[in-house]
Design a protein around this nucleic acid. Structure first.
Lengths: 114, 114
DNA sequence: TCTATAGTTCTATGATAACAGAACTATAGA
DNA sequence: TCTATAGTTCTGTTATCATAGAACTATAGA
């Protein structure tokens, strides 16, 4: 209960970078839209119109940061958003802004009553 | 009520990139800790131990993405976290994960009851 | 005006990233 | 085994980024 943020700064920075380009952020959005089924590479390519090799590199980067997972289905490869990693990233940002520091009011982000 | 995310993808990607290095993420964390007062450049430098010119470049990048603001105080320059931009970024990520898509349960991020 | 202090901008270098055509690998089906 | 399809990896080019010493700018005070 001390490594909540301090030691993981580098990891979260890498995750931010992984989502820090338009193509990759669009990929993440697309995979989130298709969650939990995910999408096959060809479907992503058809939607986002980029060369196969470029797309493959972006997917590789997202996979390295564990923001997406991949599973083979015959000749297809199906990519899915890793919601667990995203939840951690979102929690980190939320904590930095709203709880560890009181810079932002939680109610301005979300109104949950569970 | 349509440009909530679609058109701003590039901007949010740039914001993610701005926070996507360890030095800059540490700067943001530091400024959030010091919010709303912020910190003078020398104080940031003393805390994070980097050369003045390198720090200045990082601050410039954060300023370009409007993640921080700056105001002169005599010979000092005081930087502050731009909570409005951070709130937008957090809201974007929250929306993508929790509302626009239901990939992540809001309760797993935050328990707010206002 | 002269000096000291705070920070930025200039200049340069090495490292990393984005992109995409070409070649390669993996799987399914004939 | 041969072929077609789906993606990845190889190769190379171009561009951007991180870093920091040196030079410069801005402000306050004597």
């Amino acid at each position: 209960m001390k490594r909540l943020a301090e030691d993981d700064v580098v990891r979260y920075a890498d995750m931010f970078t992984a989502m820090g380009t338009e193509p990759r952020l669009r990929i993440m959005r697309l995979l989130l839209s298709a969650h939990p089924d995910g999408l096959v590479v060809g479907e992503i390519q058809a939607e986002l119109r980029m060369s196969a090799s470029t797309l493959s590199h972006h997917l590789d980067k997202l996979k390295n940061e564990e923001l997406v997972g991949v599973a083979r289905e015959g000749t297809y490869l199906r990519y899915t958003a890793n919601t667990d990693a995203l939840r951690q990233l979102l929690s980190f940002l939320y904590a930095e802004c709203c709880t560890r520091n009181r810079a932002i009011r939680p109610e301005s982000i979300v109104r949950v009553c569970k």
